[in-house]
Computed example of a mutant assay.
Amino acid sequence: MADLPVRRGSGSSSVGRWTRGFDPFEQMRELMGFDPFERMGRIVGGGGEQTWNFVPAFEVKETKDAYIFKADLPGVKESDLDITLTGDRLTIGGKRETEQQEESDRFYAYERSYGSFSRSFTLPEGVDGEHVTAELKDGVLNLRLPKLPEVQPKRIQVGATDSGKQGKVKA
């Protein structure tokens, strides 16, 4: 790994040290014994360190014959996913495990999040729970919940009517 350049002041006076090449992170490390990059992205809880929760982005759309859910789940394994449909409630949960870290590792940015997540969606009536399909490919979850045939839109033909005849319904 290449060394990251860090500017440090070369002046001998305290004013020069604070104004030229001021590195607030280096000052925090020296004065407080605290490295802001060492635990970036973590919070301290009652029982020790915990990671920020992983909150995946979802896309939900309705087509004429199904409801489609897509979620960005990079680094999540199929075995770490739990998808349930109970009545009109769809719940998608899982976890993204942290990567192995060595004690000697020093982070300069820690923006990726790890941990467990759970999202629930209330579905409208008419979902065919027996034919739901789910696929996790390239870090994207694709979930298709088909509509029951009786709730799918039906096209109504409008036509010329003879005395008393009505338009016909096409399925």
Rank of each mutant, 00 (worst) to 15 (best):
M1L: 11
A2M: 15
D3K: 03
D3Y: 12
L4F: 12
L4S: 10
P5L: 14
P5E: 13
R7V: 15
R8I: 07
R8G: 13
G9I: 12
S10C: 10
G11H: 10
G11W: 14
S12Y: 11
S13F: 14
S13D: 12
S14Q: 15
W18C: 14
W18L: 15
T19G: 14
R20T: 15
R20Y: 10
F22Q: 09
E26M: 10
Q27D: 11
R29T: 01
R29C: 05
E30D: 08
E30I: 07
E30H: 15
G33D: 11
G33P: 13
D35S: 06
F37Q: 06
E38S: 08
M40N: 07
R42M: 00
R42Q: 06
R42F: 02
R42N: 03
R42L: 05
I43G: 08
V44H: 09
V44C: 12
G46K: 04
G47A: 10
E49G: 02
Q50E: 03
Q50L: 04
Q50P: 02
T51Y: 03
W52V: 04
N53R: 07
N53Y: 12
F54P: 00
V55Y: 05
P56N: 04
V60N: 05
K61V: 04
K61G: 03
T63L: 11
T63H: 13
D65H: 09
A66F: 03
A66L: 08
Y67L: 02
Y67R: 02
Y67S: 00
I68E: 13
F69C: 07
A71M: 03
D72E: 10
D72M: 10
G75A: 06
V76I: 11
K77Y: 05
D80L: 14
L81Q: 12
I83N: 05
T84A: 06
L85Y: 01
T86H: 09
R89D: 08
L90F: 04
L90C: 13
L90V: 07
I92W: 00
I92R: 01
I92N: 02
G93D: 10
E97M: 06
E99N: 08
E99L: 14
Q100Y: 14
E102G: 05
E102Y: 13
E103S: 11
F107W: 00
A109R: 13
R112A: 11
S113A: 11
Y114G: 04
Y114E: 00
S116G: 10
S120E: 14
S120K: 10
F121G: 01
T122P: 00
L123S: 06
P124G: 10
G126I: 04
G126Y: 01
V127Q: 00
V127Y: 02
G129E: 01
E130W: 09
E130T: 02
H131A: 05
T133C: 01
A134L: 02
G139T: 03
V140S: 09
V140R: 02
L141N: 02
L143P: 00
R144N: 12
K147V: 02
L148E: 01
E150F: 06
P153M: 09
K154P: 06
I156P: 05
V158D: 03
A160V: 07
A160E: 04
A160N: 04
A160S: 01
T161H: 04
T161V: 11
T161Q: 04
T161A: 08
D162G: 13
K165L: 03
G167N: 13
K168P: 13
K168F: 04
V169A: 04
K170Y: 09
A171W: 14
A171R: 06
